[in-house]
Design a protein around this nucleic acid. Sequence first.
DNA 1: ATCTGAATTGCGTAGTGCGCAACGAAAAAT
DNA 2: ATTTTTCGTTGCGCACTACGCAATTCAGAT
Lengths: 266, 266
Amino acid sequence: MPKKVAQVPFIQSLDRGLTILQAVATSTQPVTLGELAELLRVDRSSAFRLAQTLRRRGFLSTPAGRKDYILGSAMWTLSRQYDWSNMLVRVAHQELKALANSLNETAHLAIREGRNALFIDSVHARHVLVVAGQTGELVPLYATAHGKALLADLDEKELRTIFGSEPLQKFTKTTIRTIPALVRECVGIQERGYALDEAEFMEGMRCAAAPIRLNSGMIVGSIGISAPASRFLKEHYPAHSKAVIQCAKRIGQLLSASEEIAEQSA
Amino acid sequence: MPKKVAQVPFIQSLDRGLTILQAVATSTQPVTLGELAELLRVDRSSAFRLAQTLRRRGFLSTPAGRKDYILGSAMWTLSRQYDWSNMLVRVAHQELKALANSLNETAHLAIREGRNALFIDSVHARHVLVVAGQTGELVPLYATAHGKALLADLDEKELRTIFGSEPLQKFTKTTIRTIPALVRECVGIQERGYALDEAEFMEGMRCAAAPIRLNSGMIVGSIGISAPASRFLKEHYPAHSKAVIQCAKRIGQLLSASEEIAEQSA
DNA sequence: ATCTGAATTGCGTAGTGCGCAACGAAAAAT
DNA sequence: ATTTTTCGTTGCGCACTACGCAATTCAGAT
């Protein structure tokens, strides 16, 4: 039997309003009334009234003089004020746990914070020897798999803006120390879909991480596994990196999915 | 006569849905259905159906197992994807122009970008000698009035996270070069409401800037005026700083205001 | 187990929001 | 410049949405 979807009635006009919001937010261009009407399959007048309601609330706005719609300051204000620190953790935690269990190694979730990667969640494996990197810890972007995954889409100019012109601090003998090398690394990560840390930050420690991307491609975080090099062997790379990539992909889909995400949490 | 407000009919349920969104976004705690019903002055069942519609779209979410609502990933995704670079400029430009005209000096609008302040808009005064600092330019946070205004709320720990432990680069003989000095400066800015740049970045140049705050107090940008020290005299400080502070305040209100913002742009 | 407070569902009706059509203004075409 | 077309905006009345009421279920506390 097909699972029963949503007996709770939709509030039609609210639903339509949200559709408008998403349409405007994902469009790079201002959106005209006609386009909205067509999108919703409703009369222009209906689209107009919906859009006006959104506009009065500040969720939409019209560029000076123009008639077409862009997002308004209310959206901006709301998203700025809100504490999003748990969002990724909430959405990703299940997946993180699954990853850690399937490989039986410690899995981390990280975001970019200035020049550092910030670990915002972790699931430890059952091992005597557990890796460092507790939740809340900051580590250099250029010297860790998580950090490099977060940087993957940046070009040389953007990297220089972040790191300035001073040489990068050396942590181990494999630490990347120049921007050009980092640029090459980033290109590689884009191609492969994952980043490796071969004891670049901490001796004897390996890590594989993949960027978490929204539908738009934007990188919003990274997920990865870390382990002592004695346990995380080179022959594990293919399997581990594949698992990490798929995990990142699933999280990205969870974030971008708008409807009917399963809520089997019990 | 009071200007006629909005003949265009509200879409009631959309309006209510947006109210819910704002309520949830501005609350630090998860919001229960009962609270929403009370807020909207509607029956619980109505609030329920609205909330469910928002939840299906991913705009709201319920923490594992709980029944109360928090913002969902759709909000997060939307606001991440959207290009907000023009938002502040759009909202603030009129005020920026007014400021520049009233003092007849160049006014700038800046935001924080990593370790730098980024000028995102400017209005030049009619003077032979105009200040540098074009739109798009990056300047150090610790050495400019705009930068310091943007840092005003940070404490020592946060400042160190941004600037690291290396001594700060010296630009002029008045440049702040230590974190403790910067901390003191920030405290002063919080108290006074504005920041000064006494030729700390560029010789012979003065600047006064104030942080732009949302209702929540969060700093989202800075506005200020710059001029050669020969024209921007010490006796101008009181008047200029007051003008800058009030301008910043007005912009903050524009950003936080949700309804009926005047649209007299002609 | 019982009780209490909440969330959730069903249902009939009031009222909202819809489409239609007309108007006005601005853009496109001639 | 004039006509034509397109798009945004407003008025109106019917239809159906979404509301409140009340009954039901669920969860937690006693």
